[in-house]
Every structure is written in C-alpha cells, then in structure tokens.
C-alpha cells in the first residue's frame, strides 16, 4: 500500500515537473484560408491551425456558428484580415469564447490589414454607398508584398507567445522569406505583359492585385459594393465598356456566375474565375500557387 503511495507521489512529481508547453501546440485561429496557409508556413509542426472560412465562402457573410465558438475557445493567436471584413461574426466569437490573450490589442490578436498600406481609405462613408469599409479595402492578400509583411508580424508574435520555439519560428520564417522573395522576383517577369490591361470585376475585391499588376478595373458588376448585380446596372456596364479593350471579367469562387456570364455573352469578353485565396481552385493549394494560378489564368485570357 505504501509502495503504491510512493509510486503515486513520484509520478505526481513527474507529471507536474513535465513542461506542458513542450507538448502543447500553439492554436491559431485564422479567419481566412490565406492566413491559415501562412500560419502553417511560419508555425510548421508547432502550431494547430483552424481556418474559419474556406475559399468558396464570402467572408462578409459568415455565421458565428457553434464550431467557430469551439475553435475560438482554444485559440492562442487570432490571425484575421481586420478592416471590418469580419465585423459580422468575429466580435461575437471573441466576446463569447476568446481568452483574454486574444482580445483586441493583445499579443494574440493580429489584424493583418493594420500592418499594410491600405487602398481606398474613405474620408467619408455613408451607407447609401453600399457595403463600404471606411478603413480601406480589406482584401489585402492579393499583393505578395503584403503577405511578407504579415509573415514577419506573425513570426514576431509566435516568438513572444511560444518563446521556447522562437528559433524554429525564425528558421521557418527564413525558409518562407527566401521562397517568397524568389517567387516575387519570378512574378515580376511574369506579370509584365499584364501591365495596363483592363478588366471588369465583380466586387471591389481585387484592388491590391490590380495595383500590383498595374492593371485597371473599368467597371464592377455590383452596382454598389455588397449589392448584387441588377439588370439595369449590367446594361449600363455593357454600354460603358463598349469599344474598350477589356481583357477579362474577373470573379472570385464564391461569387455568382450569372451576371458575369451574361456580360460575357453580350460582350465576348471571357469570364475568368481567379482563386482569390488558398483553395480557390484545384491548383491553388498554397500561397505561392495562388499567385501562380492568378497569373496563369490572367495571361491565358484575352
């Protein structure tokens, strides 16, 4: 009996002495697939990543569903876009299930758009303008320079949240940065032919991509951001693009094809569905292939 007690005492000491952090992975709650992919790149095996959304979902319209509450409950880092993109659901999850360490302005809270130079910052916003984001266009992931900036921010936070593994995160960041800068150099060459080309977009979700490529959007299928296309607006777009040399009508995987197809039938301009984020098409399975695919599809269109 006493032996058993001693054994238990020894085991008790062992269990309490075991550094629990060595086994526990850092849980990263990523709002969008691009940030989930980046978290995998920088965190490697040391992190568990939940992507709250997939490439076929419009992130503006997500429900604060039970599975997301369960994921938020365990999050050590919340990595989202910000700029009000997730305003309809992220605050509920944070309030209800988020730990004190992932609340706004804490170590575990990263809003990617806070760190990049945002486009379309509004001096004045009114709801009659549609679903606008006064703090700027939130779809920042389609400029590769922004991805690198967020990679650095994430690595810095991982250093602080999980100091024991700082060296591993540093190594992962190095590997990623080398890979990313090489890819960016390659894309510089690839994208040259697209400079100055015109496109019609579905929603204002391509501002960063178009700026990076030096392309121009001549019209949106949505009459106002967030308001679905209407027949009269499409007629107006058709008139507006008449005579212009438009390369493609571009849309994201979660957008309705009908309007784009109608315009394509009338104008002869091809519809190009770009991946938009990781998982947006079968080939776009990581961050690099998102841009590879985007360039391939845009160059293939005309």
């Amino acid at each position: 009996m006493r032996k058993l007690l001693y054994l238990m005492a020894v085991m008790g000491v062992l269990v309490t002495a075991a550094p629990s952090s060595a086994f526990a992975k850092v849980n990263i709650f990523a709002c969008e697939p691009e940030w989930a992919a980046l978290a995998h790149e920088i965190g490697g095996d040391l992190v568990d990543v939940t992507s709250a959304t997939n490439a076929r979902q419009d992130v503006h319209h997500i429900r604060a569903k039970p599975s997301l509450l369960a994921a938020m409950r365990k999050a050590d880092i919340v990595l989202c876009t910000g700029a009000s993109l997730e305003i309809g659901w992220l605050p509920i999850l944070l309030k209800k299930a988020g730990s004190p360490d992932v609340q706004p302005e804490t170590m575990g809270w990263i809003m990617a758009s806070d760190y990049v130079e945002k486009l379309e910052v509004m001096q004045k916003a009114d709801r009659s303008m549609g679903h606008v984001h006064p703090e700027g266009n939130p779809h920042i992931q389609l400029d590769p320079a922004n991805i690198q900036i967020v990679a650095d921010v994430l690595a810095d936070r991982l250093f602080m949240v999980d100091r024991d593994n700082a060296q591993n995160y540093s190594r992962n960041l190095n590997v990623f940065t080398k890979k990313w800068l090489a890819a960016m150099a390659r894309w510089e060459g690839d994208k040259a032919v697209l400079r100055g080309e015109k496109v019609v977009v579905y929603h204002k979700s391509w501002a960063y991509l178009l700026k990076w490529l030096g392309m121009v959007d001549v019209a949106s299928l949505e009459p106002k951001p967030g308001i679905p296309p209407t027949a009269s607006h499409l007629e107006a777009v058709l008139v507006a693009i008449d005579g212009q040399d438009v390369r493609a009508i571009i849309m994201a995987p979660f957008e309705n094809e009908d309007a784009a197809k109608w315009l394509s039938d009338k104008s002869g301009i091809p519809v190009v569905q770009l991946p938009f984020t990781v998982g947006g098409n079968d080939n776009a399975d990581d961050l690099i292939s998102v841009f590879d695919e985007t360039l391939r599809l845009l160059k293939g269109a005309s």
Binding site: T53, N54, R56, Q57, D58, H60, H61, I62, R63, F254, N256
Partner: peptide
C-alpha cells in the same frame, strides 16, 4: 445549410 458553406448566395 448552405451550398459550399457560402451563406451569401
């Protein structure tokens, strides 16, 4: 239920 989980459409 939403096809592809996209409640917007």
């Amino acid at each position: 239920y939403a096809p592809t989980g996209n409640n917007a459409e």
